[in-house]
Design a protein around this nucleic acid. Structure first.
Lengths: 205, 205
DNA sequence: CCTTTCAGATACTGATTGGTATTCGGATAT
DNA sequence: ATATCCGAATACCAATCAGTATCTGAAAGG
């Protein structure tokens, strides 16, 4: 039996805010950003519209907070995992490939991919959102810079920015394709492409 | 002075249908699929809602027709261009890279990329649309199969389906990234990635 | 205890939208 | 020339939704 928890006001508020962020992510993914209604987000969190507008100024702000909440955690998780897998070139590539396939399956991740793509499109039309999203996707601090481009590989012959952009394109593009037609695009394909991209260069010892 | 053209009913109708399809593509891209209103589409075409519902059963059908109209033409154009560029491996890769960078710039293409991505997301949530879109993106007939995977390259070592899916992922992903942050992802990057993917394999004569 | 405070519930509004019912005017047929 | 037809315009409707204004009950504070 769970003890009926006594929660202070602040705790309650924080808990509700989190519930709203998670509900919003789910509903945004399910219905689309424009198609999602504040009422449904609130209901999904077991609250009402009042709670939403008490915690966020507008739908737009809610969206930005969801994005920050999720994308931040994501980047951190990825960097962590890759940093802990040793720095050997091939091992790194394999680990990244495995990581990708793993995530792209989780039911939770599906919603995430969907929301990310939708968010990018939305950002394209909204300068304020765009700026924030670009900062999240391309962190300027050395922080989020994942350690791909293993030395000696073809990818490594490129400036970091270029290798990064290529990997991110492939990442997001393949997520979208997996979402659209999993039967045509199995998750293992990412690792395959990665191996091609990071293959040792014949003409470059 | 243009002669005031006498148009037969059928001609007029066809002309209006086309105007609507083009207007719809533009408005869908600008506002998003859910955000676009039938009224705005009609206005963009210089017509009214009546014309839309006279030519298409619903917003959904309009969407599908736009998709068929545009995606069909696109695939044809691409196949044409690549077929006419000779079959030499490197030349093919370079031509594809050039083609990509060219298109991604055209103001028209921006709307197209935006709509395509949005369409994919939309399809993810709508089985009927999904099926049709998958057929357009992965044509089963030998028709749309573009002739990439030049022999001798690493890509060519893969089954056609896999190479195709990888290229399409990179294509759509990079289009999205260019849209979001052109300063981080110049159009030339596609050719760069392509060269890496199609590089001759060191261990495979 | 009793008052104050405030997070969240409830009630409401103005604007928008997909879709329909009806009308209108020019092309077509006779 | 006139009657018919039909593609598109106009008018209308019910539903939805972001945002606001107001209220309420329980925690904070004394």
């Amino acid at each position: 039996m769970a003890v009926a928890e006594r929660l202070t006001r602040q705790e309650q508020r924080e808990r509700n805010r989190l519930k709203l962020l998670e509900a919003a992510e789910k509903v945004f993914a399910e219905r689309g950003i424009q198609g999602a209604s504040i009422d449904e987000v609130a209901a999904e969190a077991g609250l009402t519209k009042g709670a939403v507008y008490s915690n966020f100024a507008s739908k737009e702000e809610l969206l930005i907070e969801v994005m920050r909440h999720r994308l931040g955690g994501e980047a951190r998780a990825q960097a962590d995992r890759l940093l802990h897998s040793g720095r050997d070139s091939e091992a790194l590539v394999e680990e990244f490939g495995r990581y990708w396939a793993e995530r792209v399956r989780g039911g939770d991740q599906e919603a995430f991919a969907q929301m990310t793509v939708e968010l990018m499109i939305h950002a394209t039309r909204n300068p304020a959102v765009r700026e924030q999203l670009v900062d999240l996707v391309f962190p300027t601090a050395g922080e989020g810079r994942h350690p791909l481009s293993p030395p000696g590989s073809a990818l490594a012959g490129l400036p970091y920015e270029q290798a990064d952009a290529i990997l991110k394109s492939l990442d997001i593009g393949m997520r979208l394709l997996v979402l659209l037609a999993p039967e045509r695009c199995p998750p293992e394909l990412f690792a395959t492409a990665l191996r091609l991209l990071a293959a040792p260069r014949p003409d470059h010892p």
